[in-house]
Design a protein around this nucleic acid. Sequence first.
DNA 1: CATGAATGAGTGTTCATTCAT
DNA 2: TATGAATGAACACTCATTCAT
Lengths: 237, 237, 237, 237
Amino acid sequence: MEQSFSAPSANPETEEDRGQVAPESKWHRRAANRPEELFQAALAVVLEKGYRATRLEDIAHHAGVTKPLIYHYFKDKDDLVFKSLEWKIGQILDDMRSESGPSEAGTNERLRKLFEYSWARWRRTEFGFFHGTILFEMRLENPELFRKWTEVSLVQRWKVVEDILRAGQLRGDVRNDLDAAAAARFLISGGIQLAWLHLHTAIPEFAPCREKTLRETALNIFLRGIEPDRTEPAANP
Amino acid sequence: MEQSFSAPSANPETEEDRGQVAPESKWHRRAANRPEELFQAALAVVLEKGYRATRLEDIAHHAGVTKPLIYHYFKDKDDLVFKSLEWKIGQILDDMRSESGPSEAGTNERLRKLFEYSWARWRRTEFGFFHGTILFEMRLENPELFRKWTEVSLVQRWKVVEDILRAGQLRGDVRNDLDAAAAARFLISGGIQLAWLHLHTAIPEFAPCREKTLRETALNIFLRGIEPDRTEPAANP
Amino acid sequence: MEQSFSAPSANPETEEDRGQVAPESKWHRRAANRPEELFQAALAVVLEKGYRATRLEDIAHHAGVTKPLIYHYFKDKDDLVFKSLEWKIGQILDDMRSESGPSEAGTNERLRKLFEYSWARWRRTEFGFFHGTILFEMRLENPELFRKWTEVSLVQRWKVVEDILRAGQLRGDVRNDLDAAAAARFLISGGIQLAWLHLHTAIPEFAPCREKTLRETALNIFLRGIEPDRTEPAANP
Amino acid sequence: MEQSFSAPSANPETEEDRGQVAPESKWHRRAANRPEELFQAALAVVLEKGYRATRLEDIAHHAGVTKPLIYHYFKDKDDLVFKSLEWKIGQILDDMRSESGPSEAGTNERLRKLFEYSWARWRRTEFGFFHGTILFEMRLENPELFRKWTEVSLVQRWKVVEDILRAGQLRGDVRNDLDAAAAARFLISGGIQLAWLHLHTAIPEFAPCREKTLRETALNIFLRGIEPDRTEPAANP
DNA sequence: CATGAATGAGTGTTCATTCAT
DNA sequence: TATGAATGAACACTCATTCAT
């Protein structure tokens, strides 16, 4: 759970002492990108313990620095944590942008592809963390951040699906009486919840289920559920 | 959010009995059932702030008593909070038991009824609170409680839906290639997430949507998605 | 360690309900000698834990009553504890008075008898307790009590020995250049310390020694140490 | 009683450097060796009040620092107090090691010298404190420490005396029927008790006695008490 | 830049004591 | 007489934050 956040707690080789004898100075290593290291440490700890349960000490320790140093880079604890979260949101967003090539395939194919991409994202530890911490804790602690995150992780996804569905309706792939926006929310929110419960909680331990079945069943029901009626195949005036 | 939990922090009737003498006696309120009052106070505060951010002082104040009194009834803070949550889980469970008469209606009707009942439950403040606090915070702080709650709120519901689906498969109302367990999870988890996001977060403020549409679209897609294939149109007597 | 202090926590047979139906009153059993029961409970607990570590709750529990009841009989905690100690001191003193018949035996015999009586007393749990609690804790907490106790347990004993020694000096059993008062202190204080270390601490577990040897060696050395010089038997002008 | 432990609660030199500017900076005193200062403060307070009655606040105040600082150096209160006691035990032990040169004098001389050295130690405030606090309170609170201390202060001394006595027996200075181990205990335990009662309690106030007489009488009785029988007067060359 | 030392403002918990019945 | 309920005053311990170097 901490692999991608761990910071190098001391990396003596990168230092540029040469010629001069090591001058016994107390602080070696001016990290080029301290802030980012601190971001990662903060995220790792908050991921593991939750925001409220996270102590500044833990973050510092995780980053291999001392507490006061954090105040050189950030105003206070909240500043660090919230900026860390925003930084991660930005990263995830970048990652998402580079993701879905605008395909010309059929509606079902586009939805399937999107859903599977999304599921793969939801699998990731980081995502599980965000879904938990931000959706719950930040909703109370920092509504602004809550909003930013849901905008990125939910609302935009909803929109993408909504657009696909509308296009499908024009083509006749999707029944016209469907509320595309609501349907989109169902697919994405339902999928996220399914994935999160299955992949980031202990539920499978006492209520086991195969991940693939879960994913495909959900998608399948959805795709069938939005099909136009087939009994009157040309009944679309 | 605090309607059902608020306790009168001072009992006005006993205060000014007579304009004159009442010697400001230090404490009133012979508690009939303090423990339950404390449960409610604890729930109210934890609901509002989350478990980690809850201070004993707040609970005591909310219940109109002083901190040390809590130790008269409970071993420590966790004892109070966790027992409060369990108490509420029990209540909700009782409530759920008295709910769904075993109907002889068709599969669709039974699912619709169940979903609508459930949605009504998900609307309630208390439920939103549990979904947040327990699913997220208790997952980390008290896995046992997390398990108890998910067992009640999710796993059992899944089973009910699963049974209905299997019965439907026998009747021919539901297609046979459907994995009933996975489908049940999709309906319930998706519904909860939809309801929670819509009813217990600020999302509708910046991404509005009609609740009814949301609910009915989800149900509708699901019901259509589980129908047997109609390509063999005469197979339906 | 608690045998002699345990209070009957409920003794229904002694109640005088007759004729009338048991009136469901909350408080049965007016103990005839509550104070003494409380003394014993207090002593038992203080013995086990020391004065500072003793909580009123413990005493009440030990006596089979509730905390507030103690305030019916005693002003506060200290009042109870100190009176308990005084009560016990009185008891021990009574016991001591009834002890040593004024014997007409020789000096050595009298000393031997006294020392062995005393040693038997020092063996007792209660004594070990007093020696520890009073000598150390009460010296700081209640000097008055410290004084009362040492007067009884030490000073008076010293005097008895001193008198025996002086009598012995007159008879010629004890050398005349001996300071009887100092010698008496050495015998008694040394004996107490020896007995206490051996009988009321864990020392024998890692530094074993036979009790009898200890006792007799000490007495023996003392008796020989106070003998008149035998080399010049009539050298006493 | 506090002479060697008192800490300056404010460092006057840094206070009024210049009459004017000094902006009342919140804290001074870059501690050279805080841990030891805290040891001393802890010992001073525990000495005065006993372990159970000692509040962290007092120790901090005594050391001229604030409570939380203690947690910078020690895990908790017990960690500080117990380590302080161990530190002192170590010091006393060191001190003892550098004490008695192995003399070639006669048995009596060796015992006299040892006893007088010991008495001088028992006089010291610190020793009286240890004898009280450790022998009584630590016996209940921290048996391990009790053992460490008695090992150092009693058992080892006993052994030294025992060895001298055995050597004396070989030489013929000490009678052979004497149990050297028991005799050693009598001398040391009796001496400690005598010294402690006389020097560290209020007893002399109401039962006066000259210290020198006490010390010499005890030693004298002991030395005479271990002599070989003189009934065979010519056996002494 | 970097940190060890220091602190103020909490926060949970204990306990002798008192109120109301 | 007897007690369950209640509290004030303390106390151990935590933690974000700042000082001095």
